[in-house]
């Protein structure tokens, strides 16, 4: 659990983070979201003390982050930034082994850990281990960056716009990857982005920051469905706020059990947005719904989407 308690940071008298308090529960995927200059990156960097804060207190798992040296603290916390943060003069293996080496792990243990992480990130260990960053694509570099952050098996992972420098298709793949890793490892992740779609897709909880303060804190659905202010509504919704809302709700919530319709069934776990897309494509106002085993369990209609 990460606990920020009335934390402030000023640069030249101007508050970048202003009396911010928030609590990230264990195992959460917390996205700090906001426009540039809102203090989200500074907030993230205060957690591992890359930025010293002026007032307030930060606890990780009940322990004051200022209770240990910054280096000791940082070696316990995974840290990933845009792909350019890889060390260009070190091989993939050396990059991933950075923190384990700082912690003086045994050679064999490091080797095994690198293999394990490359496999976790779906990079063939024997093929990639000895490559240098400049020999990798942007997406591969970013995978190595994530593997490096996970190397010493930290409880907490800080990610500062890690997928900001890759193309949309690669970004989509990397987002699936990090979501999978989060689900599999149950690590607490604090993730900074200005990309709303990315936040809605990945987060279990979102903190929207505005001028160094907390504008809203909630699940993706709460943020889109009940924006706390005009700022949040404008930032999250834009013109397609309704579509985002449909994207966050499952068909199972609105379906009509027992009824039947013709056509290829949709999964009950798919989003209402998927249902709308299917109806538009098929020129129909109702599609059948199936459960995970493929058994037909009901239908969903156009009217159900706007209910």
């Amino acid at each position: 659990m990460i606990d920020l308690d009335h934390v402030s940071k000023r640069y030249d008298g101007r508050a970048v983070v202003d009396d911010l308090s928030l609590t990230v529960p264990d195992g959460a995927f917390c996205v700090l979201l906001g426009p540039s200059g809102c203090g989200k990156s500074t907030t993230l960097r205060m957690i591992n003390r890359l930025v010293p804060f002026d007032s307030g207190i930060i606890h990780i798992g009940g322990e004051d982050v200022r209770g240990v040296s910054p280096e000791t603290l940082r070696r316990r916390i995974g840290y990933a930034i845009q792909s350019i943060g890889l060390f260009p003069h070190w091989s993939v293996e050396d990059n991933i082994a950075t923190v384990p080496r700082l912690l003086n792990w045994a050679r064999n243990r490091i080797r095994d850990r690198v293999t394990e992480l490359l496999e976790l990130l779906r990079l063939d260990p024997e093929n990639y281990r000895h490559k240098y960053p400049h020999q990798l694509s942007g997406g591969e570099q970013q995978r190595v960056g994530v593997a490096r952050a996970l190397a010493a098996d930290p409880e907490l992972l800080l990610m500062d716009e890690p997928f900001g420098a890759v193309d949309p298709i690669t970004r989509d793949a990397l987002q699936s990857e990090i979501a999978r890793i989060h689900a599999a490892t149950k690590k607490t992740i604090v993730f900074v982005t200005h990309d709303i779609e990315e936040a809605l897709r990945l987060a279990t909880v979102i903190a929207i920051l505005e001028k160094g303060g907390l504008a809203q804190w909630g699940t993706p659905l709460e943020i889109v469905d009940q924006p706390a202010s005009g700022f949040v509504r404008d930032f999250v919704g834009g013109e397609s706020g309704g579509l985002k809302l449909l994207g966050l709700r499952r068909i199972a919530e609105r379906m009509r059990p027992g009824e039947t319709a013709t056509g290829e069934p949709l999964s009950a776990e798919a989003s209402l947005r998927d249902a709308l897309a299917a109806m538009t494509e098929r020129h129909t106002d109702r599609v059948p719904v199936a459960d995970a085993s493929g058994r037909l369990i009901g239908i969903i209609t156009l009217a159900d989407l706007v209910r």
Partner: peptide
């Protein structure tokens, strides 16, 4: 960014 990453990893 590389130096920042090094700091963030806990290098002295």
């Amino acid at each position: 960014a590389i130096v920042d990453a090094a700091r963030g990893m806990g290098m002295t």
